[in-house]
Design a protein around this nucleic acid. Structure first.
Lengths: 103, 103
DNA sequence: TCGTTAGTTCACTATAATTGAACTATTGAA
DNA sequence: TTCAATAGTTCAATTATAGTGAACTAACGA
């Protein structure tokens, strides 16, 4: 399975804001932010066990396509990392502020 | 016509981000930001004259319901102001940063 | 009163999100 | 090496939300 990730310069502000405007996705991003450096499986990063896994998969796809996370296969899991450097390079201060305001 | 505006404490981060994630709405907000203190009619604040006015009206409704603007009737026009104080009180720094990053 | 202006509301279409079911790929155990 | 379990994707169907033209409303001016 090969995931498509946009390159750093293809990140759009609208795409990032839209991706982060959903509470589930924001919680995923927060998890990855706080576990920076560590990859996390979908189940690990997702805060809602009762959510349909297809829905969750879709949220991860949206985060990927917005350029917020990078996902690679790792055994039976799909591990995701937050693309902090790319996001910060493109939109300095945005991620940190949103996560702070969402506390 | 009575418009419903959420109170300051009812503004949600998701609602604000979602509202600002649309390019048309972001341009409206930018216009109102730069003409701070002045109300603006929809036609004035809207940057796309070719857009259907029902679409535009819908964008203003979304901005209103997200708590970003305040609209009052003023003669034949509906004048909108950016609720800068409310937004800044609830989410300090967010509006300014997003507008700066969107330049 | 009639036409114009400025915007809303309605009805319809089109696009996006949610979900269960079926599918794929990897691992671990018998 | 086969079989079951795990972790997620993809598909198809439903539901919700955005975009649009047409009809409507309210205020103003001649």
């Amino acid at each position: 399975m090969n995931f498509v990730h946009p390159s750093r310069e293809d990140l759009t502000l609208g795409g990032v804001l839209s991706a982060l405007s959903d509470p589930t996705r924001l919680r995923i991003v927060r998890f990855l932010y706080e576990n920076r450096g560590n990859c996390a499986s979908c189940a690990e990063a997702a805060p809602c066990p009762k959510m349909a896994k297809s829905t969750l998969s879709n949220h991860f796809r949206i985060l990927r396509e917005a350029g917020l996370i990078h996902t690679v296969k790792h055994g039976v899991e799909h591990r995701s990392v937050l693309r902090k450097e790319d996001i910060d390079a493109r939109f300095p201060g945005l991620l940190e502020l949103i996560l702070k305001l969402a506390e």
